[in-house]
Amino acid sequence: MKTHTLKYDSTFEGLLTAVFTVYEERLSSVLIVEERFFEANFFSKVNEVFTDESKASRVWEGLKEFQQFRTSVYRSFLSELPDKEVYILDAIRYVLKTRNDKDYGQPSVLKLAQLTKQIGREKHRMKAFVRFKRTKDDVYVAIIEPDFNVLPLIARHFKNRYADQQFVIYDRKRNYGIFYDLNTVELIELDFDDAVLKEALHDEEMHYDKMWQDYFISTGIKSRINKKLHLRHVPKRYWKYLNEKNPL
């Protein structure tokens, strides 16, 4: 029996549509693959899944009673791992069959819980380490490159925290960002690089960087510096976001 490969468009709604297709067509041997990771296989029958909002909604509603698990499904999708769909589909099948979403002895349920924990940690660090810089147009801009696609998870936090200022948070690794215009948050795509940002910065921004660096140095007590502890709480890969570590 050939394996059915369902290729979808890389959106979360597309993934849920593919899950719906598995149940609708009663497929047993099936592999759901994001189009960017798809590789043709002679032993597999390939079907392209076209995103259907109504079908996606039915799957999402079907998981409504398992709120914690449903969160794990979404966050595991944001992990962007090439084989995430294998675990997501297997976990969904298990939970809907057994009505048990907390059986961490089941490998796929456990995997989704582990991914959720990792993504939650990255989300928390992005909230802590994002630094905005003011532009000449009075729009505040922050550049990030998180390990996981956590931008959808932090948008509300920054919208609530900086409700009175326009801002852009741009994920350079994934080439998209969010723009808050004092009313709504919108997804954006830009040609963005450090030279463009530096040219757009407000003239006072460099002075703020210098003041913050001076403050950081003056309040430090050399005899109490614990580099090991510091790196545990502020890993080096986040230093590029911090004015005191890497000013633009």
Rank of each mutant, 00 (worst) to 15 (best):
residue 98 T to A: 11
residue 83 D to C: 02
residue 72 S to Y: 15
residue 78 L to R: 07
residue 80 E to Y: 00
residue 91 A to V: 04
residue 74 Y to F: 12
residue 101 D to L: 03
residue 96 L to C: 10
residue 97 K to I: 11
residue 95 V to I: 08
residue 98 T to M: 13
residue 91 A to F: 07
residue 89 L to H: 04
residue 69 F to S: 06
residue 88 I to T: 04
residue 102 K to H: 13
residue 66 F to P: 00
residue 77 F to E: 00
residue 71 T to W: 10
residue 65 E to C: 03
residue 82 P to V: 10
residue 74 Y to V: 06
residue 71 T to H: 11
residue 71 T to S: 13
residue 86 V to H: 06
residue 69 F to Q: 06
residue 70 R to M: 02
residue 75 R to W: 15
residue 97 K to R: 14
residue 93 R to D: 12
residue 95 V to T: 08
residue 78 L to D: 05
residue 82 P to W: 10
residue 65 E to V: 09
residue 76 S to I: 09
residue 96 L to A: 08
residue 101 D to M: 04
residue 70 R to Q: 04
residue 76 S to L: 10
residue 71 T to E: 14
residue 87 Y to R: 04
residue 70 R to I: 00
residue 99 R to W: 05
residue 87 Y to G: 00
residue 83 D to N: 10
residue 89 L to A: 07
residue 82 P to A: 10
residue 97 K to S: 15
residue 89 L to K: 03
residue 91 A to I: 05
residue 97 K to Q: 14
residue 95 V to G: 10
residue 97 K to D: 15
residue 92 I to M: 05
residue 78 L to I: 08
residue 73 V to T: 03
residue 65 E to Q: 13
residue 90 D to V: 02
residue 101 D to K: 02
residue 90 D to F: 00
residue 86 V to G: 01
residue 99 R to Y: 10
residue 89 L to W: 07
residue 97 K to Y: 15
residue 88 I to G: 02
residue 96 L to S: 10
residue 100 N to I: 12
residue 89 L to F: 07
residue 89 L to Y: 07
residue 77 F to V: 01
residue 88 I to M: 11
residue 78 L to S: 09
residue 102 K to S: 15
residue 68 Q to T: 14
residue 91 A to S: 11
residue 93 R to K: 13
residue 81 L to F: 09
residue 102 K to P: 01
residue 101 D to I: 03
residue 74 Y to N: 05
residue 87 Y to C: 04
residue 65 E to P: 02
residue 71 T to N: 14
residue 70 R to V: 02
residue 91 A to Y: 05
residue 88 I to R: 02
residue 84 K to P: 00
residue 77 F to C: 03
residue 67 Q to K: 15
residue 88 I to C: 01
residue 79 S to M: 07
residue 95 V to N: 08
residue 74 Y to P: 03
residue 91 A to K: 08
residue 102 K to Q: 15
residue 98 T to N: 14
residue 71 T to P: 01
residue 86 V to S: 04
residue 90 D to K: 12
residue 74 Y to L: 12
residue 81 L to A: 07
residue 78 L to N: 05
residue 66 F to M: 00
residue 90 D to M: 00
residue 80 E to F: 00
residue 102 K to W: 09
residue 90 D to W: 00
residue 102 K to C: 12
residue 66 F to Q: 00
residue 84 K to Q: 03
residue 93 R to M: 10
residue 99 R to T: 08
residue 87 Y to F: 11
residue 67 Q to M: 07
residue 88 I to N: 03
residue 88 I to D: 03
residue 70 R to L: 02
residue 67 Q to S: 14
residue 74 Y to D: 02
residue 75 R to I: 14
residue 101 D to T: 03
residue 85 E to V: 09
residue 91 A to N: 07
residue 75 R to V: 15
residue 68 Q to M: 10
residue 74 Y to I: 09
residue 75 R to S: 05
residue 66 F to N: 00
residue 90 D to Q: 06
residue 84 K to I: 05
residue 65 E to G: 01
residue 88 I to S: 01
residue 72 S to P: 01
residue 100 N to K: 12
